[in-house]
Design a protein around this nucleic acid. Structure first.
Lengths: 350, 350
DNA sequence: ATTAGCACTCGACCATAGAGAGTGCTAAAG
DNA sequence: CTTTAGCACTCTCTATGGTCGAGTGCTAAT
C-alpha cells in the first residue's frame, strides 16, 4: 500500500488524468493533451514538470524520449488505492441495467436450482460486458452441505454415484467396483450413510469418513468399505471445477490486437489450477481486492490484472468471483462490476 | 465430383506438386520452384505452360500477375478425389504413435464408462495434434438405448432426474414439479416406467411416451402425467451437446495469424447448431467425406474445409466425427486422422 | 511559482528506388 | 509438334531518406 500523502493534490489530479485517458485510449498521454482535455487549470509546461516528477518516483514511464507518458504498475496501484478509498461511485447507466438483467437471469436459473448453469451464466455475462475474463470458483467444501448421495447400479462392476448438496451442486460419476453387488445392499448402506451425514459440510463428512475407515477397518464387509471409498471419491469431485469465460471477448480489446498476446493470454488462463490457487488466497478477505501486473506472485499471470471479491451465504465466504484483464484495465468499472455481481450471487444463497 | 480423366498425367503431377507445396507452406508456388523441388522431369517453362492451363480450367489461381499460383477450391477438390481414389497411404510415424496412445487413453476412459469424457478427450487429442478444430456429435437417439431413469426428490417441488443409457450417457437435471409428492410414489412410477421401456432406443421411448400420454390422458393422476413429462424432458437432453475443441490450437496455424481471421473462426464454431446440422447430413454416408470451402451449403462455414466420418456400433452409424480447418488443410493427414479415430471410437462401442 | 518559447528528439508516414520472383511470349532446338 | 532457353515485363517487398508532428526538457520572462 502506497501512502496516499506521497502526492500533493495537483500531482494526484495529473496522475489520474493520465491514467484515465490511457485507460480510455491506449496511447501515451502528453502534457498538452492533459492540459487541454482535462482543464486542470495549469499550463502544459507545469504539467510537464509534474509529469517529470511522477516519472521520477516511478508512477509514469515514457516509451521513448519524445512520447507521452503511460502509467506503471505503481502508478495504477496508487490510482486503485485512491478510487477504493474515495469510493468513487460514478453512476453507470449501462452497468445498472446490466445488473438488473443479470439478477433476473440468475434468479430464473436459481429456480431450477442449477448452480453450474448459474455460475457459467454469470461469468459469460460479465466477460461479455467488460471484454475481460470472468472467473468464479465453486463454493468450497467448508461451505457446502451434503444433501444426499445416491448410488445406482450400472453394471456388475460399475456404479453411478450422484452427489446432491443443499447449495444445488449435482455431480455424477461412474465408478468401478472390483466386486459384485446387488442394488439392495447398496441402498441399505447409502441410506445409512445419508442419514448419518446429511446436513454436514462436505469437509466434515470427508473427515468423518476417513476417521471411520481408519477406526473400523476390517470391521465391516468389503462392500461397506468400498462404498465409503465411493463416497469419498464423489465428495472430492464437488469443488474442483472453476468457471472461466471470455477469451473470445478479450480479442476485442486493443491490448490483444496481436496474436502473440492472445497466445500468452490463452496459455495463462488455461492454467486453471494457478488461477484457483491465487483466488483462494482472497477467500477470507472482505471487500474487493485488486492485483496489478507484476504484483502477482504467480509469474505466469504477471501480465494480467485481477479484480476479485467473494460471494457468501449468511455465515461465511463461499467462493471468489474475479475479472482478469490487461494491466490497462478499467479498474473503476471492473471493481464496481465484481462488487455488485458478488452481491447478486451472494443473494441467491440466502 | 470432377472426372479424374480431365487431366493428363503431367498436369496431375504439377497440380499435386503445387497443392502439396502450398499445404506445407502457404506461399504462392512458382514454376521454377516446382521444377527444382519436385524434379518432375520438365523444365520450368513447360511447367509454366501447364500451370497456365490449370489456371484456365480453374484449378489454380494467381494472387497477382507476377506471383506464383495457389490452388482454388476446385483444385483442392480434384486433389482430394485423387487421394481418396488412390488410397494414398503414406505411412505416418507420428500418426501411428498418436493412434496407439489415443487408443489406450480411450480404453481407460471407457473402463469408467464415461462417454462424455471420452468424446472430449478425443476431440482434444485430434485438435492438439492437427491444429484443426475437432468435432464429435453425440450418438443419435435412434442409436441410444434407455437403461434407466432415476428420479430423486430434491425438495417439495424439485426433483433430480438422472438418465442412464447403455452407451454410457449419464445426464442429470433438476426439474421443477408444480405439485408436492413423496419419494415412494416417484419410485413406484419410475420402477414401472423403467421396466416398461428399458432397452428401447430413446427415440422409441419418446414416441411410446407421447402415444401413451395422448391415449390415456386424464386416466392417471397428476403425478404420473408429470412424471412422464419429466421423462420426456430428460430424454430430450441426451443428444443435444456437441463436442468441439481446438480454437486455441488453431491460432498456431499461419492461416489464422491475423486477428480478424480468428474472430471469424471463433464466430463460426460458436454456431454449434449449424455444425450439428451439417454433420448430421453425413450420418448415413459410409467412408470419409470432405467438404471444401465454398462447397459448403452453409454460408457461415464457407471459409472452412471439413473432413468427416461416422462412428458406429455393430448395427448402424451412431454419430459423426470431423475436423474443421482452413481450405489450406492437410487433407491427406486429416483424412487419415478422422478415418482412424472414427474406427477407434467405433471399437469402444462393440 | 508559473508559463511562454524554443531547440531538440523520435516515431509515423510517405514516396521513391532497386532487388527479386515469377510470368507470358517468342524463337530456337530437339 | 513439343519442349526449352531467353527475355522483357509486371508486381511485390524492402530499404532508404525526408518531412511532419507530437512531445519533451530547459531557459528566461512574468
Amino acid at each position: 500500500m502506497i501512502s496516499k500523502d506521497i502526492l500533493d493534490d495537483r500531482s494526484k489530479k495529473v496522475l489520474c488524468s493520465v491514467i484515465e485517458s490511457y485507460i480510455r485510449n491506449p496511447e501515451p498521454v502528453g502534457s498538452r493533451f492533459v492540459a487541454r482535455r482535462y482543464a486542470l487549470g495549469f499550463s502544459s509546461a507545469t504539467i510537464r514538470n509534474i509529469m517529470a516528477d511522477l516519472e521520477d518516483i516511478g508512477f509514469l514511464s515514457q516509451p521513448h524520449t519524445s512520447a507521452g507518458r503511460i502509467p506503471t504498475d505503481k502508478g495504477y496501484r496508487f490510482y486503485v488505492d485512491y478510487i477504493l478509498d474515495v469510493h468513487e461511485t460514478g453512476y453507470d447507466e449501462e452497468l445498472e441495467q446490466f445488473l438488473v438483467k443479470l439478477n433476473n437471469n440468475l434468479e430464473n436459473i436459481r429456480r431450477d436450482f442449477n448452480i453450474n448453469t448459474m455460475f457459467s451464466e454469470a461469468t459469460d455475462a460479465i466477460s461479455t460486458l467488460t471484454n475481460y475474463i470472468g472467473v468464479i470458483t465453486p463454493p468450497r467444501p467448508q461451505c457446502t452441505t451434503l444433501k444426499r448421495l445416491e448410488l445406482i447400479r450400472y453394471s456388475t462392476n460399475q456404479v453411478v454415484a450422484i452427489l446432491l448438496t443443499n447449495e444445488g451442486i449435482i455431480i455424477n460419476k461412474i465408478i468401478y467396483i472390483p466386486l459384485s453387488y446387488v442394488q439392495d445392499d447398496l441402498d441399505k448402506i447409502t441410506d445409512y450413510l445419508n442419514n448419518e451425514y446429511a446436513g454436514n459440510t462436505l469437509d466434515k463428512v470427508m473427515s468423518l469418513l476417513t476417521d471411520r475407515v481408519s477406526i473400523e477397518k476390517d470391521q465391516y464387509n468389503n462392500l461397506v468399505n468400498k462404498t465409503i471409498r465411493i463416497y469419498e471419491e464423489a465428495l472430492s469431485l464437488a469443488t474442483e471445477d472453476i468457471f472461466v469465460s471470455g477469451l473470445y471477448d478479450a480479442i476485442n480489446l486493443p491490448d490483444y490486437s496481436d496474436i502473440s498476446k492472445i497466445k500468452e493470454l490463452s496459455k495463462a488462463i488455461k492454467e486453471k489450477h494457478l488461477i484457483l490457487r491465487l483466488l483462494n488466497e482472497f477467500i477470507d478477505i472482505e471487500g474487493v481486492q485488486v492485483i496489478i501486473g507484476n504484483e502477482n506472485p504467480i509469474s505466469e499471470l504477471q501480465n494480467l490484472s485481477i479484480v476479485a471479491s467473494t460471494y457468501k451465504d449468511k455465515q461465511r465466504n463461499m467462493g471468489v468471483i474475479a475479472l482478469l484483464g490487461p494491466r490497462r484495465m478499467d479498474y473503476s468499472r471492473a471493481i464496481h462490476m465484481v462488487d455488485n455481481v458478488a452481491k447478486l450471487i451472494s443473494r441467491t444463497f440466502d
